[in-house]
Simulated assay, not measured.
Amino acid sequence: MKAIDFFCGAGGLTHGLLNAGIEVVGGFDIDEECRETYEHNNAASFHSIDIRDVSLKELKSRSRLRKFDNVLFAGCAPCQPFSQQRKSETVHHSTTLLTAFGRLIEEALPRAVVIENVPGMARVKGFSTFRRFLHMLEKNGYGYVYDVLDAKKFGVPQNRRRLVLIAIRSKEVSIPINTHGRDLQPFRTVRDAISHFPEVAAGKTHPKVPNHSTANISEINLQRLQYTPLNGGDRRTWPKRLQLDCHKNGYEGHTDVYGRMFWDLPAPTLTARCYSISNGRYGHPEQDRAISLREAAALQSFPDNYQFFGSNTHIAQQIGNAVPVRFAAALGMHIKDLT
């Protein structure tokens, strides 16, 4: 089976599909800055183009495929319009990306389709973009199933709940079975993923480990980390002089912010700001810093030799927005078994 990875970013999904034995013929993404990372690590070409501008003719030309009857279309559109963190009621332009993806499916009629996105994608009220997408699949003879899966149940050392949709033409479909959890393999932990990396100070880059770079930290935030207990501690132990104004007067919410990860649990969900302690429980379990980019990549189950290119801010986005490699591989192997 061959595959085309739409919204490919840094290549987490592509790398997982390749590991599952699926030949990825190309990745499409509007972000040109992802090209070097994608092509350096994957045997596939990067195509910098907006999917809304891709015609069937151009898709055939770029993929060098004349037909798609044994091809998987993988589409993990940007999740911002469906995220719980999004407060605005304004229609986000990215919702049209799923519509554009659906148009290409309807024109090309690939053998299989897989989508990964935040659970909120299926909870939009009314006849949503997602519901219209499902109607398009039904109209074109696809059997489909979707459910919310947690990547930690497939060997990823991270709590990461995502909606997954799998569709195959003229066939009944199922969701992959968990491989990790109760009565299965144990969940992979932060310790499993990052304990082998050498120490590195805040604001520094290790000279021998690619992307083992950490964000600068202010003096007051350094003091806050020093007062945060190791292995899962949080801001509730800080002296009053170090408390943020928004956390004073007995406020108990959002204790993950500025917190340290637990060594022997899966990590919290990583975001595009996962190397900053002020954006979640992204503090190292022991060292006085946020996790490094290399450690974030490991928690997304990228192999240690997967090298990222660009500014640290953009690399954090590449990592945080990626489909975890192990999760992608599990989806790929399941789709191969179904087809």
Rank of each mutant, 00 (worst) to 15 (best):
G283M: 08
I277T: 15
R294L: 10
F309V: 01
N249G: 11
T228I: 11
Q226K: 14
N279W: 01
G233D: 00
N279F: 00
H247W: 14
L265R: 06
G259I: 10
N312S: 12
F308H: 03
N305Q: 03
G283N: 13
A297N: 00
A297C: 06
S278A: 15
N305H: 12
R294G: 06
G253T: 06
C246W: 02
Q318A: 07
V257F: 03
F309S: 06
S276G: 12
A298T: 04
G310I: 14
R281H: 08
L242A: 13
R281Y: 12
R260I: 09
L230E: 11
A298F: 00
W238E: 08
D234G: 05
Q287D: 07
E252S: 14
H314M: 15
A316T: 06
H254W: 13
I315L: 12
P285S: 08
L270A: 05
F308W: 03
P268M: 12
Q317T: 15
Q317Y: 12
G259L: 11
N279T: 13
F262H: 14
Y227A: 10
D264V: 01
N312E: 12
T237A: 04
L225T: 01
N231H: 09
G259S: 14
P285W: 03
P229S: 13
H254L: 06
V257W: 01
Y258W: 14
L265F: 04
T269R: 05
Q317N: 13
T255Q: 15
D264H: 11
L242Q: 04
L244Y: 13
Y275F: 13
D264Q: 02
G280L: 13
D245H: 07
Q318D: 09
G280H: 11
Q243M: 15
L270Q: 11
G310R: 12
S311H: 08
G250Y: 04
Q226W: 07
I291R: 04
P268R: 05
N249W: 02
R281V: 10
